[in-house]
Design a protein around this nucleic acid. Structure first.
Lengths: 336, 336
DNA sequence: TTGTACGCGTTATCAG
DNA sequence: CTGATAACGCGTACAA
């Protein structure tokens, strides 16, 4: 049996409400009562029950995070861990704890239980698109939520911080174009190329700019495969590119490594550019030009929105766009 | 105002207990009542309040995880993320959620609030050594806890899964010795070498084996620094090692890279061995021999212990040792 | 089979 | 200043 506030009251010879006042330092009580209460608390090792406080207070002081394995992020990306750390920090600074759920799959059944059972005041989704079923549970509980997503679709069923990586990739193409590059090889992330907004943006932009060189290989998120594919391409290609643009930094770095092995100088002979701005990008030799995901900004906007929403009774759906930022480093240069 | 069980009862024209029975499928109620209840639930979008259920049930169905930045692990280690994923999975399979707290610093004040306020039934620490202050809070709440730690110290104030990485490093030295190596260079993780159990184990074991070659450089957890330090060592060393043993895989892989650049063949000319068994170790060329941290085992033992402890009223302190496992791959060979 | 009433541990309101 | 007492929403004996 845990010691309750009643035990403390009895021990201190006062009433429960006096104990509450003494602990919360609200109301005015005599020094004597105050002291006796605190002594009793010490003696009995009293710690208030969090669940009971939540029940009466009407809030749990925690925020749920749903982060499934199939993100838009690479799962091996060290970003994710620092995102979690940053989330934890931001939340706890506002007095909230983090209830993290990493479902094994994306199916509704996996998440419904969590959404129903979790003692949370709000939710941050890292899922591509919250399903209507899930959103309904939140509505029943009147819980605010915000998704951190990619793309540019209007999310109608929830608030969302949305990074338009398609637009980011277009910026990347434009940047290389502005350096004079007209033959840009694209390294796609995986086999589902035609559903990858980054790929689509490359294709679109290359077309818009009227370039007739439009070549693509698939790196499958992997350094090894990128290496193999690139060396195959280099052998068979009729015209070699003057710039390589990769769907993420991992593959861009792999490409740089391959070029280095072949004695091709970056950026003098070939420019290389990535996407994400992982830590390794800045440390590479030469340092990798890339499009940075504004991770901190995304998290902060999501948290701010949730903080605000949790204060209000009515739910509104906000769209919070953020942009990928061009980070110019040493791996790209003007074509001479 | 949220819809409560009373609303459902009124809507269905039955009493609250009938509603509970219908929802929990316990007790026996008529088909008719059952149906009416469920219809009311649907109509009103009723979701039971998690906090209230916790209060009456006496359990929160969640487990706290404290994972501070200064772990024994590398923070950039992708292991950590998969550990979290595995924790989430294991916990949710048993019907528990994960309350993750990543305090910015290790000080008590940072964690006390969490320990007091978190709605959890048990706690898993990733901290090196829970402080007495913290343990006291847990005792007041009568919460079971288990720490996941390194070293071989008996933890007296809490249960602990403990991996003796010192013993693991001794095994590593022994293995290289058994291959005939007598000159083993050690790459330490950071400047605080003399407090690093892995380093100490190397020194001790080398001494025990009566080897007079005992050389060490400091890689500071970093590929770049390892490279620099190693190339410096290679130039100035009077006697070069026949084997390199690193305090973690990152640095071992960096060493392999350096050797490759210098045209030194691994393992024919020099054996290289790491510690941790990060994913990249298996993918390296040649694949890296290393001591694996039995991460899954550590997590499973911690979870099992917590699951068991949460069932019982009395708290006991168990010591759950696990061993690092030798993973022989291609980067080590017998000295010829 | 169903309804009533109490308890879970707190906080908040309102007398005293 | 302090003490009863009513919520908070649900589960569950116990009674009907």
């Amino acid at each position: 049996m845990r010691t309750t506030i009643k035990d403390v009251a009895r021990e201190a010879g006062v009433s429960v409400s006096t104990v509450t006042y003494a602990l919360k330092k609200k109301g005015k009580i005599t020094k004597a009562s105050h002291k006796r209460v605190w002594e009793a608390v010490e003696r009995l090792n009293y710690v208030p029950d969090a669940t009971a406080r939540s029940l009466v207070g009407g809030k749990t002081n925690s925020v749920g995070i749903i982060m499934p394995p199939a993100l838009g992020f690479d799962f091996s990306d060290p970003h994710i861990l620092s995102m979690l750390a940053e989330l934890s920090k931001t939340l706890s600074h506002k007095g909230y704890w983090m209830s993290l759920y990493m479902p094994e799959r994306m199916e509704d059944e996996f998440m419904r239980q969590f959404l129903m059972d979790a003692k949370i005041d709000g939710l941050i989704w890292m899922v591509q698109r919250p399903t209507d079923t899930m959103v309904r549970v939140l509505e029943c509980r009147n819980l605010p939520s915000v998704a951190i997503t990619y793309g540019k679709d209007l999310q109608l069923n929830t608030s969302a911080v949305v990074m338009d990586d398609g637009a980011g990739m277009e910026k990347a193409v434009d940047y290389l174009y502005s350096l004079g590059h007209r033959r840009i090889l694209y390294i796609a992330r995986d086999a589902e190329e035609m559903r990858d907004r980054r790929v689509l943006a490359y294709l679109q932009r290359v077309k818009d700019l009227g370039l007739d060189y439009c070549q693509m290989i698939s790196g499958h998120f992997s350094e090894k495969i990128t290496l193999a594919q690139l060396s195959w391409f280099w052998r068979v290609a009729q015209e070699r590119p003057t710039a390589i643009l990769a769907g993420n930094d991992i593959m861009a770095l792999a490409a740089m490594k391959a070029l280095a092995q072949w004695g091709i100088r970056v950026p003098d002979e070939v420019s290389v550019m990535g996407f994400d701005d992982i830590p390794a990008a800045a440390q590479a030799m030469p340092a990798l030009t890339t499009m940075a995901q504004p991770v901190s900004e995304m998290i902060n906007r999501a948290c701010d929105h949730i903080f605000e929403a949790m204060e209000q009774e009515e739910r509104t759906h906000a769209l919070l766009p953020v942009e990928a930022k061009l980070i110019v480093r040493q791996s790209t240069a003007a074509l001479n």
